[in-house]
Design a protein around this nucleic acid. Structure first.
Lengths: 237, 237
DNA sequence: AATTTCTGCATTGTTAACAATCTATGTCAA
DNA sequence: TTGACATAGATTGTTAACAATGCAGAAATT
């Protein structure tokens, strides 16, 4: 009786298929396995995930509402392709939000949380040593989500995850070949600053890090690949 | 030719019907015209907005992804009913984000922006004097969105708007009859602190204000109305 | 009378067919 | 060769019918 009720609760919140598709695409974007402008055709997704078209379309709608996917009327869904302006907006937002996150962490972080963060950085180093590029990229972004998660605040975590994922797209588009991933010593510095208990220096550490990432990008010039070839050719804009 | 292209661009991003439904429900929640737990039946929405069921369902999905609507499998959509924990999470998130917003505003706000904010507060006072409760509620929340909008950063604005809207639900659920809306003199104080150019005092002003709102709530006790009667009666949880 | 079970109705979820739009290819004229 | 135009195929958008589930009221049993 109790078990049955619990089972129902699981399926109640979010359909497993639905969230599965969203998560998989989310992860793929984070690991830069899905490049901006990649077409996500409904049929392909249906076959990939073995679900009906409705599920796919719902997942795409959710992804588009979070800026990960660009839904174009009658033309299909594409992995989003943030403009330079959007990129700056994401970084400004991240600066404001993540400084708040580390500031509060500096005030009251538990030993367990510190260990979790250090373990994460260690994983990053390992992945770096093994030249596992995909894993390095994934962990670099995940570190910032991990920071947010220390607050055990789903609302906050969701916001940060969205911004981090969009950052992956931005790096893919504007990243210069050098230094397109967070150097992990900066991550370690952030942890140190938090542990030191000084909110201000923690803020400075993350601000420095985010600005460093942003400056490693090429936001002034044109984007990688065709700027907006598709739209231009079809007479839009 | 150019006009035609622009017209297309409009319909390209978000379907007007779709966004219209979302916005209307969003506004209704902000103005506390839609109470938590209100059932949003598909048929009723179809008739209200004169659109097909598909549009309605898509709108509900979007609203649920933002925590405004609770989609229950086979049971329908209800205006969300945040728990006390969720409420605290929203306030923590708002504290972190909005302190960042006003801090940066204190560093670099233009004269136009100040005027826009002051005009907003004046509208609040007017509404208060006319005892237009709905309008007061709407403007109280909108002030915080207005603050975010000074950064001209859609990413940031979207996050704040979502949190503010969820706060409306929280106030509706946990608000004591007294002081359930932001007192506008605090809004004025926030502007003053920003104008003074001191980031720290601006942070303090908004922190004070948000804590004040949170403390005017009754987050410890049970929620207004039936705590979770529906779920209990149907044997869930 | 209270509780349980059953039945019909209303609402939601899903599917599949259809309509509309876009893309690519091929044809024709300049 | 180049460009416009037309056609066919593929893809997306929409609708309507159907299936599944939940809900409320009636009937029946204790």
């Amino acid at each position: 009786m109790t078990n049955e009720a619990e089972d129902k609760l699981d399926t109640l919140r979010t359909d497993p298929d639905e969230q599965m598709i969203v998560d998989r695409i989310y992860s793929a974007v984070m690991e830069q396995k899905l490049a901006p402008r990649t077409k996500l055709s409904e049929l392909a997704l249906c076959e990939t995930f073995g679900v009906g078209r409705m599920r796919v379309r719902r997942a795409l709608l959710l992804l588009s509402s979070q800026g990960i996917v660009d839904l174009q009327s009658n033309r299909g869904a594409y992995v989003a392709c943030p403009s330079a302006d959007e990129a700056r907006e994401v970084f400004v937002a991240r600066l404001m939000i993540e400084t708040g996150i580390v500031r509060e962490l500096a005030r009251c972080i538990g030993e367990n949380d510190v260990q979790a963060l250090r373990a994460h950085v260690e994983k990053e180093e390992l992945a770096r040593k093994s030249d596992d590029r995909t894993e390095v990229i994934r962990l670099s972004g995940a570190f910032h989500v991990e920071l947010a998660e220390r607050h055990e605040n789903p609302v906050l975590t969701r916001v940060v995850r969205e911004l981090v994922t969009r950052t992956s797209l931005i790096v893919a588009l504007f990243g210069t070949n050098q230094a397109s991933t967070c150097p992990d010593d900066e991550h370690a510095s952030i942890i140190d600053a938090i542990v030191s208990g000084n909110p201000h220096s923690a803020e400075e550490a993350i601000r420095h890090h985010l600005l460093h990432v942003q400056n490693s990008l090429d936001l002034e010039q044109t984007q990688k690949a065709e700027p907006d070839l598709v739209k231009i050719l079809t007479g839009r804009i």
